[in-house]
Simulated scan of single mutants.
Amino acid sequence: MEIKFKLNGKEIKAEAEADTILLDFLREQGCYSVKRGCETANCGLCTVLMNKKSVLSCSVLAVQADGQEIVTLEGMQKEAEEFGDFLANEGAEQCGFCNPGFIMNVFAMLEEIEEPTEEEILEYLAGNLCRCSGFVGQTRSILKFLKYKKGGKKEA
């Protein structure tokens, strides 16, 4: 089946089998930040933005992307690099395997909640698993990033 959608700002027209999951389809398109983890919609590694909302690409069919706007980490390099500095400064990037899905969820959260509280951050990111460090460093990095975005100084 032919699908047309916008991927990271670029118009895409491609063939997709009816049973192809979005995760596999995006990797075929060169979006290697989209990772396979649990395949049961429980880890957040495959998170992408569909129309600015986070979706787990392991539980969405590629044909559902037809007419939609999909953004992966490859389409958010500048923003991801900026936020990634905050993760690194808090020691929250350890192995880095969960970072792409985590970062995508952070930016989806910021689209939805302008000034999230620490409790809202933890609730919003509950679907992302980090086996290295838990969420203490990640939460600190988000709070510092939010403060910086509001015009504060970048803390070391």
Rank of each mutant, 00 (worst) to 15 (best):
L146V: 09
R140N: 11
D24Q: 01
E79W: 08
S33W: 02
E114H: 11
K149C: 07
V71D: 13
L26G: 01
Y148D: 09
N8G: 01
E120C: 00
G151R: 11
G37P: 11
M50Y: 04
V55H: 08
T139L: 00
L110Q: 09
V106S: 00
T117S: 15
F5Q: 03
E119T: 06
K10E: 12
Y124A: 09
L146T: 11
D66R: 02
K150R: 14
T47E: 00
L129S: 15
E82M: 02
C31T: 00
G37F: 02
C58H: 05
A62N: 07
E111W: 03
K78Y: 08
D19G: 05
D24W: 02
A108Q: 06
R36A: 05
G134W: 07
A14I: 08
K52Q: 10
A156Y: 10
E118N: 01
L23H: 04
E11T: 10
E111A: 07
N99D: 11
S133A: 10
E155I: 07
M104W: 04
P100R: 05
K149D: 07
R27S: 00
T139A: 00
K4E: 13
K153H: 11
A41V: 12
E2R: 07
G101C: 03
S133P: 11
R27T: 00
A80Q: 11
M76D: 13
G152I: 06
G30F: 03
L73N: 12
E11W: 02
G127Q: 15
G30L: 01
V60Y: 04
G91C: 11
